[in-house]
Write a protein that binds this DNA or RNA. Structure first.
Lengths: 236, 236
DNA sequence: TAAGATTTGTGCGTATGTATA
DNA sequence: TTATACATACGCACAAATCTT
């Protein structure tokens, strides 16, 4: 045996092929049998290379169907000034929001604490789907104090933009106080709305946005399809 | 029906019971039948409440076994000064690192780019498991430029602390330039090492640490067991 | 709807080279 | 040196999921 394993060379070749666009995102690779013939190796050796690429989230395989190139995840910057449209524009994607529901109800304990309200105080709630280039990227649930933003649901109906709706209520700027990030497997409801298999990992962020005076203006929860996004903090 | 559904009251009661410690993390709740009797409702109503708690990651159910309270996730702060031991100490946990492997090899393309080296330049690689209160919390892989930190593996063998090992090479302080966060399902290898089921979601962070002069000193990748941790950015 | 072909997933056995004790 | 463990590679067979007809 040489200095490095045979399967690593096969992996590197396939990774280069994908990088050069011979196999586009979403497209199927040749079958394991075909690749084994192409490289003149056993099918197990090809499988070892594919397993490593799957580990690196470059491809994924579906039994009975084939091995597919993953979509390039949208980079999504999380920082003091996190804006959905700006983030997607920076990644060269077309941002879109689809409204699932708009309602007014009493705040839960968690929502009340985040917005510095009493439990049961009226809040406006905006639920929907974020799309990137037409594909579902995330589900979100934004909660606003109803007394301070009485007409926010109407503004959201028109435009969908949280930034614009807050601006219409005199909040010219807001910043993110904190973000919590967790992950969990997709439930059936999540999976259906995001068009992915049940059990696929979701990235969940919980954020509090405050105005320039430090008062909470929005409590937001978002569930990202994990294989369609990379959350980023800091410079790079 | 009153102002709110019956199952929400049952959920709130159970959540309060758990919060007050009547059911400890890892412990089993009473059976659905017992809960149904306690609340004087149908088992389906209890199931609706449990389903909501499972959605919120408060409990999880195992067919044939019961419903169990999840462990409280360790809050893990990600910022410019991210330190494993400090983070866990702040959460009141006992931090520990177990070495899986220490090796020297050529840098991959990704590693080389992050550390501003040429592909194939020698790097020291430190792989291991992070433990929180004795339970596996995360897998990590830290990569260091070999020419600048020639003896780092020996220091890591003694202590395990990256901060201490870098200090021994004259790096008194380092900061995190960036962090990327993704999620994926656990492979068999990951699952075995982290002692969780295959397919459970993992939080993956990729970080570059730089010294005070801005030179990269460490390229680190970490896979957290998602249900044992909450990543946090910002103030709160 | 059903049958059959295709494709990946899994398991077992064999053999060889490399690193470690 | 020997012995043992481990990674690599090949071959065969069948199961499970998927796609096509």
């Amino acid at each position: 045996m040489g200095r490095s394993a045979l399967w690593t060379a096969i992996r590197d070749t396939l990774v280069r092929d994908i990088g050069e666009g011979h196999y586009a995102p979403g497209q199927r690779l040749p079958t394991e049998a075909q690749l084994a013939e192409r490289f003149g190796v056993n099918r197990h050796t090809v499988r070892r290379a594919i397993a490593d690429m799957a580990d690196q989230n470059i491809v994924f395989s579906r039994r009975g169907a084939g091995v597919f190139v993953r979509h390039i995840p949208t980079p999504y910057r999380i920082g003091r000034r996190t804006r959905f449209r700006q983030n997607l524009a920076a990644a060269g994607r077309v941002a879109e929001r689809r409204i699932l529901s708009l309602e007014t109800r009493g705040a839960s304990a968690q929502e009340a604490k985040a917005l510095r309200l009493a439990k049961g105080d009226a809040v406006h709630v905006y639920e929907g789907i974020s799309l990137s280039d037409g594909a579902p990227l995330a589900l979100f649930c934004s909660v606003f104090p109803a007394d301070r933003f009485p007409k926010i649901l109407e503004h959201l109906t028109e435009n969908g933009s949280v930034t614009a709706a807050l601006a219409a209520h005199g909040v010219s700027d807001y910043t993110r106080k904190s973000t919590e990030i967790t992950a969990k497997a997709a439930s059936k409801t999540h999976a259906t709305l995001l068009e992915l298999p049940v059990g696929d990992p979701l990235l969940r962020t919980v954020a509090i946005n405050i105005d320039s005076a430090g008062k909470p203006v929005e409590f937001g929860r978002t569930w990202f399809a994990a294989d369609r996004v990379t959350l980023m903090t800091g410079d790079a």
